[in-house]
């Protein structure tokens, strides 16, 4: 303690060192926490997603929040057999009134067997009138494709379907 405080005054070196430590810990925090709400989980997907098993993706995106079975409200339309994994059309429709008080906030598309399972996240608004979106996916190999809908009250609903892929279409 004596070397830190000189004559009742904190030395400059100590202050700088403390600041440096703070900076380091602040930068490392998002990676250590890894929960929902962090920049890596919920932010812009401009950078490549990490290579990880699908369980890790779900944990990173939703933390420990329970995911309910939504197969009765989520209608997924995609081929049973995809001859070309590079272009697999998918449409996801969630039965919801889409009013400002009751709507689907986001739809996540996750393919289990891709090296980077996170495929796309759609952020919806009540003005869409219906919660229906479509896209073309790249699938690496045969496996489940999940659609997870997040309602505006935070409920998570999931539906999944297996797709057989003859030729993989995803190098990543």
């Amino acid at each position: 303690m004596q070397e830190w405080v000189e004559g009742g005054r904190v030395s400059r070196r100590v202050v700088l060192r403390a600041l440096g430590l703070l900076g380091v810990s602040a930068a490392a925090a998002p990676f250590l926490a890894g929960g929902p709400g962090t920049a890596s989980g919920q932010g812009n997907l401009g950078s490549l997603q990490p290579e990880e098993p699908v369980d890790a993706t779900l944990k990173r995106l939703f933390g420990g929040r329970p995911i309910k079975d939504g197969s009765s409200v989520i209608k997924m339309d995609l081929p049973l057999i995809a001859e070309n994994g590079a272009v697999v059309p998918i449409t996801v429709e969630v039965q919801s009134p889409m009013t400002p008080t009751n709507y689907v906030k986001s739809i996540y598309i996750i393919s289990d067997r891709n090296r980077r399972p996170m495929n796309a996240r759609f952020s919806l608004t009540p003005e869409m009138g219906a919660a229906a979106i479509g896209a073309n996916l790249r699938l690496n190999e045969t496996g489940d494709v999940r659609a997870i809908a997040e309602l505006n009250d935070g409920t998570l609903l999931m539906a999944k379907r297996e797709v057989k892929v003859t030729v993989g279409g995803c190098g990543g």
Partner: peptide, 18 residues
Amino acid sequence: LQADTTQSISENPFFSFT
């Protein structure tokens, strides 16, 4: 509508919405 997409979306991406 806003969509965040990754490279797991096909070349010449197609999107549909209501």
